[in-house]
Design a protein around this nucleic acid. Structure first.
Length: 293
DNA sequence: CGCATCCCCTGCCTGC
DNA sequence: TGCAGGCAGGGGATGC
């Protein structure tokens, strides 16, 4: 499920147990995920300290004390499970702890302070890479990533400029990580519904001839921000619940208005339409043909 | 270049 | 009950 709000929620879950902590040991349980792990991946990580746990778009970025960055992407099904195991300060202190390995557990981090952090990924579309910090901007995995939809970068003017001249469907343009980074299929559907905009509309219609934003661009900018912020807030509350349960992080239940709600009445109280589904760029789009124009 | 299609992988749901 | 087919929230490669 991980789109920007989910990745941000995972970041907030990992931060207290990993930031400022030394990695005691790493176990990789297969050769790689989507890509092979870097050479000597586990050995290279051991002993290094995570100085900051950050996020850029849908990428988790763990800054290491020697200038490299552990870049992690959750793909479609990646998640982390955190287990607190005493107050380990040296490798091997985990040896006496009960080790539970579940199906699709691929990487296990043992962290100073006693956390065992396990990466689980059923479909293995996620990946982990080590990149020198100064090469992040040029690295093939992270080069050309678009602007963050939260924060100050996304304005109606910027949105209009990014979409100007594009004949592609608005849905496809919003999914393009080179333009805006972090939106996925769910939140694009949700934001377009909230903004009352058709997923089929040409992306370029958000810009006037002089390049300035239309009122639709203003509305969409606002709805993107709101839906992401609300989802992060919901993830935060879920995170607290999970922490009380078993410490696992991952698939959070949010209430979506249109996503996966084909056939439901349109949730817009002033609309009598029905949520429909169509395929764009090979992926399902959920929308109301009556109030999204 | 822009855009569409296919593919990586596993699991779940549906229909026959 | 078994099994084939379709589908899944990401994104890279390929082809037109």
């Amino acid at each position: 499920m991980p789109e920007l709000p989910e990745v941000e929620t995972v970041r907030r879950g990992l931060q207290p147990v990993m930031e400022g902590r030394r990695i005691l040991a790493v176990e990789t349980r297969r050769d790689g995920l989507r890509f092979p792990f870097p050479a000597d991946f586990a050995a290279r990580l051991a002993g290094r300290t995570i100085t900051a746990m950050g996020r850029r778009a849908k990428y988790l970025m763990a800054d290491l004390d020697d200038g490299e960055v552990l870049v992690m992407h959750l793909g479609m099904t990646g998640r982390f499970v955190i287990e607190q195991q005493g107050r380990a300060t040296e490798p091997g202190e985990f040896a006496n702890a009960v080790t539970r390995i579940a199906a699709h557990d691929h990487v296990v981090f043992e962290v100073e302070g006693g956390a065992r952090v396990t990466y689980n990924d059923i479909r293995r579309f996620g990946f982990m890479a080590l990149v020198p910090r100064q090469e992040i901007e040029a690295h093939p995995l992270t080069a050309g990533i678009g602007i963050e939809p939260l924060g100050n970068a996304l304005t109606p003017e910027r949105l209009a400029a990014l979409m100007a001249g594009k004949a592609a469907p608005l849905k496809a343009a919003l999914l393009d990580q080179r333009l805006i980074a972090g939106l996925g299929n769910i939140y694009v559907c949700e934001a377009l519904h909230r903004a009352g905009l058709s997923p089929r509309r040409a992306a370029g219609t958000l810009a006037r001839k002089d390049g300035s934003p239309t009122k639709q661009a203003v509305r969409l900018t606002e709805e993107i921000r709101l839906v992401l912020e609300e989802a992060i807030e919901a993830g935060g509350s879920t995170l607290r619940d999970f922490a009380h349960a078993d410490g696992s992080l991952g698939y959070f239940q949010h209430r979506f208005k249109v996503y996966d709600r084909e056939g439901d009445p349109c949730p817009n109280p002033r609309c009598s339409g029905v949520v429909g589904r169509m395929v764009q760029s090979g992926r399902s789009t959920f929308f109301c043909a009556k109030c999204q124009r």
